[in-house]
Design a binder for these strands. Structure first.
Lengths: 211, 211
DNA sequence: TAAGTTAATGACTTGCGAGTCATTAACTTA
DNA sequence: TAAGTTAATGACTCGCAAGTCATTAACTTA
């Protein structure tokens, strides 16, 4: 008997957790938390359901782990950009928004945002955590860029908090859209083009009138 | 025995369907489709689960009904605004966006948008329907305002399709936000203020330079 | 007011999926 | 290579919620 084709089970204690959260992220984003079967998560991670329970106590614990993973490196990179940037504040703003798209929007991490929006009301404590540790921190990046431009007179006077939200919204919406209405994307603008237009509107909308 | 307090059952064939879809909308938006129990929907509509099945064949049929209800009157009103408006295109744009907020954003109808985003990938056919009949039609309103302004020279030249999406995004995001991260809304700007800032950025971002 | 019609009920069935655990087999080390 | 350790498995339990249906009671009309 040739048992050469039998996929022998392997012991890979280190790799399992991240493989499981990655699989869970994909399925949670696609189907939602409640509609995702743990059997399917395990299968996608190439493992049995029993193994999943070796690493996570419950479905909710898995969810929490999915949310807590990722994101932080991207935020740190954003903060590094902010710290090292010299030159026009509008350029900084553009760099930050583009980094956002490159580091999060284009990657699987973007799914976390859609997932959080869908499930926030079912997991208020996790939403709270996410709001404090991720959203607030991300928003602070944009607010800092606006503050810098206002201080230097490059931007006109504005209410930074409100403007920050208005500036962030199209980027978030783009991400959310790609994870939900992806089926109806024919005729939609390319993300890059969309981002360029957004920046274009902002340039005219934020800059102080030339003296 | 005083049975005066007993809530006697009433026969109200006409009113039931809309009461049931209204209850379902609230719960679907709050918990998501899969996590909502039909017992709870029925209870909120003041009816038993058996009654629910008198009017809807299945949970999915109920979902479809929820999505199909509403929205159309608001779209019609938007189209009426477009048809009757005379004067500056930017004013038209502002009127449309404000009407959007008043007729949808502030009402329960706004939940449909969040619901659709959360569930689109689980119900592709319904997402398709919603995209064609609602989104496309709503987007056409904004696009028409932009077209009018460009034709008259009030707005500078632009790619109308892309700009339409960028303009709509903050309004959608505001709606979605209020239905998901509502728990963390302390310190967030008021919707009206947010809308005003959005329009303010647009005014400067869209208008052609004064000659 | 009695007979007929149908809206409404809620106890019941049933299948599905979260969580368990005794067994297996991949590694370790003596 | 044999004994010991633990990662991995998958068949199992058990509760929950979708969907059913025989019964009840609110209306109708003769």
């Amino acid at each position: 008997m040739s048992q050469s084709a039998v996929p022998t089970r392997k012991r890979r204690k280190e790799a399992r957790p991240s493989e499981l959260t990655a699989a869970a992220l994909e399925l949670f984003v696609e189907k939602g938390f409640a509609a995702t079967r743990l059997d399917d998560v395990a299968k996608r991670a190439g493992v049995s359901k029993g193994t999943l329970y070796l690493y996570f106590d419950s479905k909710e614990a898995l969810f929490k782990a999915v949310i807590q993973e990722g994101m932080f490196p991207a935020l740190a990179e954003g903060e590094a950009i902010l710290a090292r940037h010299e030159g026009p504040a509008f350029e900084l703003l553009g760099t930050l928004l583009n980094a956002w798209w490159t580091l999060i929007g284009e990657t699987h991490l973007s799914g976390i945002m859609k997932l959080m929006i869908s499930e926030a009301r079912n997991f208020p404590e996790i939403a709270q955590f996410y709001h404090e540790k991720v959203i607030t921190r991300g928003r602070a990046l944009i607010a800092a860029a606006l503050g810098r431009g206002m201080a230097s007179g490059e931007f006109r006077a504005m209410d930074i908090n409100v403007y920050t939200d208005v500036i962030i919204a199209p980027v978030l919406m783009l991400i959310v859209w790609e994870h939900s209405m992806a089926c109806c994307l024919a005729g939609e603008p390319e993300p890059r083009e969309y981002m360029a237009v957004h920046l274009d509107v902002l340039r005219r909308g934020l800059l102080a009138p030339q003296v």
